[in-house]
Simulated scan of single mutants.
Amino acid sequence: MRKRDWDTARAILAGADPEHLSYYVTVAGGVRDVTRWITGPIREEPDSALPVLIRGAALVSLAWEVSEAAGESGESPEVRQAWAKADECLDEALRLDPACADAWAYKIEVSRAAALPVEERWRRFHRMIEIYPGHWYGHVEMLMALAPEAGGTTGAMLEFARTRAAACPATHIPALVVRAHLAHHAHLEKLRNPAGKGAIADWSYLERDDITDEIWDAGQLSVFHDDYHETLLTPIPWNLFAYAFTYGDILKQASNLYEVISDDWITREPWGDMDFFLASRAYTHRNLG
Rank of each mutant, 00 (worst) to 15 (best):
G219Y: 04
D227R: 07
G219H: 08
N239I: 00
T246N: 08
A218P: 07
A242E: 00
K252V: 15
V223N: 03
K197A: 14
I200T: 13
F224V: 06
I200D: 14
W216V: 13
R164H: 07
S262M: 01
R164S: 05
L221F: 03
E189Q: 15
L176D: 00
L257Q: 09
L240H: 10
H181K: 07
R164I: 07
H184S: 08
D209Q: 11
Q220T: 08
D227S: 06
S222F: 04
K190A: 14
K190P: 00
D213S: 12
N193L: 00
G196N: 08
D210G: 05
R164W: 03
Y205N: 04
H172T: 05
R208G: 01
T212H: 02
P169G: 05
G248A: 10
D264Q: 02
T234A: 08
V223K: 05
E259Y: 03
I261M: 02
H229A: 08
Y243H: 13
H229S: 01
P174I: 07
N256K: 11
G248K: 12
E207K: 14
T246M: 07
L232F: 04
V223F: 07
G198M: 03
T246G: 04
R208Y: 01
R192Q: 01
L251A: 08
Y258H: 12
T246H: 06
I215Y: 01
D227W: 00
H184K: 14
D227C: 00
E207N: 02
N193T: 06
I250D: 10
A175W: 10
P235M: 01
V223E: 00
W203A: 03
W216E: 12
H184D: 15
Y205S: 06
R192M: 01
N256G: 15
K190V: 04
Y258V: 12
L206C: 09
S255Q: 06
P174K: 07
E189D: 13
A170E: 09
P194A: 07
L188H: 10
P237D: 02
A170D: 13
H172W: 08
G248C: 14
S204C: 04
R179W: 14
G196W: 03
T212I: 10
L233Y: 04
R179Y: 13
D227Y: 00
Y247C: 04
A186Y: 14
T171D: 11
F241V: 09
E207W: 02
N256S: 14
F245D: 04
K252M: 11
D213W: 04
I250C: 11
F245C: 12
T171A: 08
I250G: 05
A166T: 15
I250Y: 06
L257K: 09
G219S: 08
D263P: 01
H187P: 10
D226L: 14
N193S: 12
